[in-house]
Computed example of a mutant assay.
Amino acid sequence: MQVSRRDALRYAAAASAVVGLGATAATHAPTANAAAPTLIDFAMRQIPAQDIRAAGHAGVINYVSTSRPGSSFGAKPITLPYARSLTAAGLVIVSNYQYGKPGGTAPSDFTRGYPGGVADARTGWNLHTAAGGGRNAPIYFSVDDDVDRHTWDTLVLPWFRGINSVLGVQRTGIYGGIKPCQWAAAEGVIGKSRTPGKVWAWQTRSWSQGQIFPGAVLYQRIIDTASNPGPLVGGSRVDVNDVLAQDCGQWNFHP
């Protein structure tokens, strides 16, 4: 991607103002490691910015989707006042969309194919912009399941095509295991980071067999479960994600 000198200086200035996303992430490490800057993701409640900073994290990946029927997650969707509090504390924000879930009160979003992708992209973008999200920032859409190639080809790929029809490829990202991240990159349905060799792939440790996709910008290393609780931040259990690229789709990098 060609960047003008003026844009390069603007992005460099933005990067220097980002807590924790400096030289370490700029090297776009090929593997995740505990020394990388970290972002947390969570749904239960809005964790105060000062608690996130005190825990040593650089920011959050927050939902631009609403709660499923029968649930009421305090951090879904991100709100403008909360986003402003995070930004004022020097923390970065990355957007993620997930409404349904396997075994939940609403099915996985990708099961609704192309029309579902159109609807989810519209909802996600409306909530993203209402909270002050960057107009050029991506939204990561969740494939929170161990999908095989047939499911990818018949359901997930059409869903992403629907998302692309609303947002365009460059504002579309994926959350999932290593195979969906690889397939999304190969099919050209997710955009490119400004960090060379990186795409909008947020990879989870689940279903990844200990491997990390070299193109990923984020890696979900700690997953909060009942049997293996995540760390407490501000009194809430969280997932922890290693930042593998200076440009991981944070709002302030994509105004």
Rank of each mutant, 00 (worst) to 15 (best):
R135W: 08
L21W: 15
F253E: 15
G215Y: 11
P196W: 08
V199I: 07
A35Q: 12
Q220Y: 00
H150D: 13
N96K: 11
S4Q: 01
F110M: 03
Y97I: 05
Q50W: 12
S165P: 06
Q250W: 10
S95K: 11
A185H: 14
G235E: 13
K198R: 02
P69Q: 05
D41F: 04
A119M: 01
S67N: 09
P115K: 03
R84V: 00
F42W: 07
A49I: 02
T79Q: 08
A184N: 06
T154C: 04
V243G: 14
R53M: 10
T195N: 04
N228F: 12
D144S: 04
L91Q: 07
A15S: 13
P77T: 02
F160H: 06
I222K: 14
A226W: 06
N252Y: 12
P214E: 06
A54Q: 10
A23H: 14
Q170D: 05
I78M: 11
P37V: 00
R135K: 09
I174P: 00
P158A: 00
A43F: 10
N228A: 11
A89G: 01
L232C: 11
P102Y: 03
T87C: 14
A88G: 15
L157M: 07
A121C: 00
W251N: 04
Y97F: 07
A185P: 11
L39K: 08
A17H: 13
W207Q: 08
R194V: 00
T151F: 10
F110I: 02
V240D: 06
Q211D: 15
A89K: 02
T24W: 12
R171S: 03
G249D: 09
S193Q: 01
Q250G: 08
V118N: 05
P196M: 07
D144T: 01
L232E: 14
R6L: 14
T129M: 13
R53N: 10
F160V: 04
V156A: 08
Q182S: 07
G113V: 08
P214Y: 04
W207Y: 10
P180N: 03
L167Y: 06
D153K: 08
D41C: 04
G249N: 03
